[in-house]
Design a protein around this nucleic acid. Sequence first.
DNA 1: TACTAGATGATAACCATTCGCAAGTCAAGC
DNA 2: GCTTGACTTGCGAATGGTTATCATCTAGTA
Lengths: 216, 216
Amino acid sequence: MQLRMTSQRELILRELKKSKKHLTADELYERVKKLMPRISLATVYRNLELLSDVELIRKLEVSGRQKRFDSELEDHDHIYCVQCHCIENLNIGNNTVSLAAGHMKGYTITGRRLEVTGICPRCQRKQIKKDGKHSKGGGTVGCAKKGVLSDEQKEVLVAMKNCDEPCASKDIAAATGLETKQVSCRITALKKKGYVESPVRCKYAITNDGITALNA
Amino acid sequence: MQLRMTSQRELILRELKKSKKHLTADELYERVKKLMPRISLATVYRNLELLSDVELIRKLEVSGRQKRFDSELEDHDHIYCVQCHCIENLNIGNNTVSLAAGHMKGYTITGRRLEVTGICPRCQRKQIKKDGKHSKGGGTVGCAKKGVLSDEQKEVLVAMKNCDEPCASKDIAAATGLETKQVSCRITALKKKGYVESPVRCKYAITNDGITALNA
DNA sequence: TACTAGATGATAACCATTCGCAAGTCAAGC
DNA sequence: GCTTGACTTGCGAATGGTTATCATCTAGTA
Ligand SMILES: [Mn+2]
Ligand SMILES: [Mn+2]
Ligand SMILES: [Zn+2]
Ligand SMILES: [Zn+2]
C-alpha cells in the first residue's frame, strides 16, 4: 500500500513543520481546522500515525500521556517538565548514550529513546513565588486540575461557606442532615481539589478557590 | 497524609515482588485476586500509584503501552521487544548515560528514562522459522490482533468463501447485492486483519485465518 | 473511460485508567 | 473504653485519548 499526498495530509505535515513545537493530535487539529474547517479529527490522527510510519515525522509517546508529534527528524532527545509537562529538545550528543548499535542481551537493537525529566525554569520561578507568599499549596503548580463539583460536593461546600469559622465535619453533618462519614469523605475529596483547607486538625474551611468554584 | 499498610496493600506489594516481572495493573490484579477474591481493580491501581509515589516500587511508562510496575528499586534501565512487547532489565552502567545530575537548560533534573527497543532473541527465532517456511505474513508476529468481525464484514467474507477461486469485488457485490464500493472498502479492512489475501491484483480470496474467524 | 485502492468525515466503540460515593477500619485523643 | 475522622476499600460509572467502522469521495492505473 502506498501513500498519496492528499491536501489534508500535506496541510497536516506543513502545519506541524511550521509550528516547530511538539504538538498533540488535537492541538494540531485546532490549527489545521482554521485552514480546512471540514477536516476531521480522525483524519489528523490517521495521518500523524501514517506519516510517522513512513518517517516523515516522529512520534513521541509516553505511557499515560497524550502522544506528541515532532517534525524534527534529526536524532535528538527530549526533556520534560514534571510539573507543567512542557517538552523541549535536548542535544546531549550521541556519544553520551553509546549503545553500540548491534546486539545487547541477544536483542537486535532498533532504537533508543532517552527522556530526561525535571522542573523547567518557569515552574521553578512559580514555585519560589508561591513559597514566598505562603508555604501552602501542594503539588499541582502548572497543571490546572479539572475541579468539577458534583452536587454532593456542592452541598458540603455550601454548608461550609455558611460557617463563619473553621468547622468540624460533625457540624457540616448537622447542618446538612448527612451522615458524618459521608461528610468526612466528601471533605477529603474537596481538600484534594484545593477547595477546602484544614487550618487545624479536624477543622475545615472553604478556600477562595472553593468559593470561586461554587459561583462558577 | 500517611500511608497505612493494609492487607491489600501488603499483598499487592508482596505479589509484585514475588513475580519478579514487570507486571501491568491488571496482570497483578489477576494474581492478587486468587488470594483475595474480593479485592477490586481500582484498589490495585490506587495502591500501585501510591506505592510508587513513596518509592516502594517503580512505575515504568513505556511508549504508548500500558503502565508496568517494577519491584526492583535499584537503578536500572529496560529493553523492550518491539514485536512481542516483552521487557527485560538492562544494566548499562550509569556512566554511559551521564547526565551530570543538576542543571540542564535551566531544568532541575529529577530523573531520566532510557528506553532501548529491539527484537528479542525469541522473536528473532520465530522470524527465521517463518521466513523459512513461506515469506508471507506481514508485521504481527507476537501481537495477536483482535480480529473481531462485524456483521458487514462477515457478509463479505461468507460470499468470498463460497467462491472456488479468487474473485473480484464486483463478483462479491453481485453475490451479496451490495454496491461494489462498499465491498471494496470492506475487503480492505478484512485484508488488514489478515482474513483476506490478494493473490493477484484486484482478485481476492479468503485466508485460513479468515475461515477460522468465520467459524468462531 | 472504467475500475478500485486508498482517503475522508462522521460517529461509535474501545479500553486503560480515574473518580465518586458509601461503607469499613483503625490509630489517636478524650 | 469510646468516639472521632483520616485513610481505605469495593463497586460502578465516567473519562478521554485513540481507533475502528462504514458510506462516500477521489485520484491512479490499466
Ligand atoms: Mn523534538
Ligand atoms: Mn526492571
Ligand atoms: Zn514546567
Ligand atoms: Zn519479542
